[in-house]
Every structure is written in C-alpha cells, then in structure tokens.
Simulated assay, not measured.
Amino acid sequence: MATDIKDAVHTVDAAAVMRLFTGRPRLLALGEPTHGEGALLDTRNELFRQLVEQEGYRTIALESDCMTGLIVDDYVTSGAGTLDEVMEHGFSHDWGAFEGNRELVRWMRAHNTGLPTSERLRFAGIDGPLEITGAASPRQALTALHGYLAARVDADLLPCTAETLDRLLGADDRWTDPAAMRDPARSVGQSAEAGQLRPLTDDLAALLDAQTPYLITATSQDGWDRARLYARTAAGLLRYHHWMADTSPARMTRLMGVRDQMMAHNLLALVGRGPALVNAHNSHLQREKSSMRMGTVRVEWWSAGALVGTRLGKEYAFVATALGTIPHQGVDTPPPDTVEGLLYALPEDRYVIDSSQLATALGDTRPALRVSPWFGYAPFDPAHLARIDGMVFVRGVPQT
C-alpha cells in the first residue's frame, strides 16, 4: 500500500496543484486546518507567488474582515500608508501579527511597484466584520454606502438622509456589546431602530444597482465594486445582529450560516477580477456542510465553499490542507490509521496529494478520523476525500 500512496504524492508547487484540475479554476481555495502557523503560511505564500508568475493569478483573498481588507488592497496597489500601519489596521482576528501575512503583503507591494494598474495584484478579505465576541456596528459600511450615493445621485432618490441613519444607528457600543453573543436580550438586532435600518439598507442597495451604468462611468469599476461591498456588508451585519437577538434553538445555526453567506457573497464578487487564490479554514471552503459542537448541541450549516461551489461548478476548486504535528499545542505524531498518519510516514516534509489517486490507493480501507487534543486544530475528515480536488500535506510545524 505504501508504494501506491507514494504514487499519489507530488512536490509542492503550482504546477502540481494545477495538474489536479482539468482547467484553471476561477476561484482556487486552499484550506487550512488551523490558523497562524508559519509553515502553513509560508507554503501558501510560495504557492501564491508561483500561481502569479506561472498561471496568471492576480488576487489573494484571506479569511479576514472584508472592510479592513480595503486598507491592505490600497497599500499593495498604490502604496497608501506604511506596512506597519497596514498590518495593524488591515487585518481582523489579530492576524496582522503573523509574520507570514506580513511577508505576503510586503511581497505583493514590491511586485506591484512599477506595474500598470491592470496588472497589479489585489488583496481581499472575505470575512464579515465579525469576531468571536460579536459583530461590528453596521455604521461604517452603511454610511459609506450612503455617502457614495449621496455624492452622485439626486437627493430625491435617496430613501433617507445621513442624519436619519446616524439617529437609527445610535452609539456603536450598543451593537458591539460582547455580552450579546451569549445573551440575546443584550442585542439590539431586533430593536425598532434595527428594523427600520434593514429596509433602508435594501433601498440603498437597490438604488446602487439601478444607477450602475452612470455610477461606473462617474467613478470607476473599483469605486462601484467597493460600494457593492459596503451594501452587502451592511445588509449582512444587520442580518447577523437580528439573529443575535433570536432566542430560538436555531440561533447559532443561523449565525454560523449568515457568516458563511457573507463569505460566499464576497467570494462571488471576486470572480470578475480574474483567477483568485482563497485561503481560509478548511471548514469554510469545503463542499460538505460544516459543523461544530457547542456544549451538547451539534450545529451544522452550509459553508461558503459549498455555496460558491454550487454556483460555479468546476470553476471553483478546493484543495484541503492536512497537518501532521503542532508540538507546541500538544498535537503529536498522528495515529498510523488516519490520513495524516499515512502521509506522515512518508519521508518528505510537504506534498501535494492527488485525492483521487489516494482514494484508489486506499481501496476499501477507511482511515480513522484523527482526534485533536487541541480545540484550535481540526483534523481532516476522511469522509470528505471524494469531495476535495486535492490536498496539501505539511508534516509538521517547528517547535516554538
């Protein structure tokens, strides 16, 4: 069996990844089983550089706040701000502190220097302005959308004034109260003001669509694209806050689903830019339902990858990443009957795996599901093997 498995593994490079597909996918999703580990980020960065240089990829999208991601995009395309400022303010979840992300942004800026606008690399965040402790106020996205329209269309077409939005939004800390994540009664998401904001947001988004030909001419494609980002982010945040105030048993299922819906909408918006590499947790990019256990309750929802893959078909590709060891988190040598254990027994540190060849090599053997001793790492589920386009395996991360 070992010889057969060796036939399924290849050197980690862009050429090996592209051989997994019959054509170049418009969205190539590279998953990861945990966040922030340097070996995974280095592998991602190396693959992205090769995809840019050899395959014409022009965008990288990360599981980070789509609004703050505009700061990163401005820096890599035009040099706005400083690298330190961008890493501090351009990423959510404190991921600007990861050296691999810093190196990615530095390289993209250097690559773009001197290139025509049409050839410059782009950066995007695909997550909503969401943290584990809660969600941002819709103020930034909603006022940016209103401001974009107010500066360019007849005031009589606007559904409300900026002052009305400001009054309905109120203080931002009403929206960002971390206690609302555990106590629906603390959420303002189903208040009378929030109820008025939702149709106003819908009307602003409809006005943006209705004025598309004029707005793109008056501003630019990029300007209109950003306004669309503001519109879908404002609507998504209001929807998320609405369900934060929900008291039904489906509350967490809805919240998880809204988050991945927001990711899916942001991914679909990238399609027109040309081929893009997307890097996020495996659970957000897989074609199967995602799940997590919260106490005694198992919560399931459709991932962003499942939603996008259904829309794009073969133009969406998902390459999962599996990992052998994370010594500093107590994730030691994987059991030999798991997918990670079978790959860990091979001699090299990194591989691209042809999942169909691996499935053939395994035959009727059903690998066991690895059990993680650390909540921050999710092992690869062998039941998903038939629904991935390939796999990257990293043997381990250095002890820190």
Results as ranks from 00 to 15, higher is better:
A359V: 06
Y214Q: 13
D4Y: 10
R19L: 11
E32I: 03
Q329E: 10
A151K: 14
T338S: 13
R24T: 14
M294G: 00
H281R: 03
R186D: 03
G305L: 08
A29W: 08
M244C: 12
R293S: 09
S191K: 07
N45G: 07
D166L: 09
T113L: 07
A304N: 07
R298A: 11
M108T: 02
V371P: 00
A361S: 12
A110H: 11
L362A: 05
K289D: 09
A185W: 12
A192L: 15
E348D: 12
A206G: 06
E288K: 10
G305Q: 08
V72M: 00
Q286C: 04
M67H: 08
A306F: 04
G134C: 03
L28R: 09
E46F: 14
S137D: 13
G79H: 07
T333R: 14
E315D: 15
D73G: 01
H281I: 01
A179N: 10
I5L: 02
K289G: 11
H146S: 01
C66D: 08
T310S: 15
G125K: 02
T77H: 00
E163T: 12
M294S: 08
M18C: 02
Q50K: 13
A306V: 11
D42M: 09
P398M: 03
L369D: 11
I353R: 10
D173W: 10
A227F: 04
W243T: 15
A276Q: 13
I326P: 04
R273K: 13
A264H: 06
P116W: 04
H10G: 01
E55Q: 13
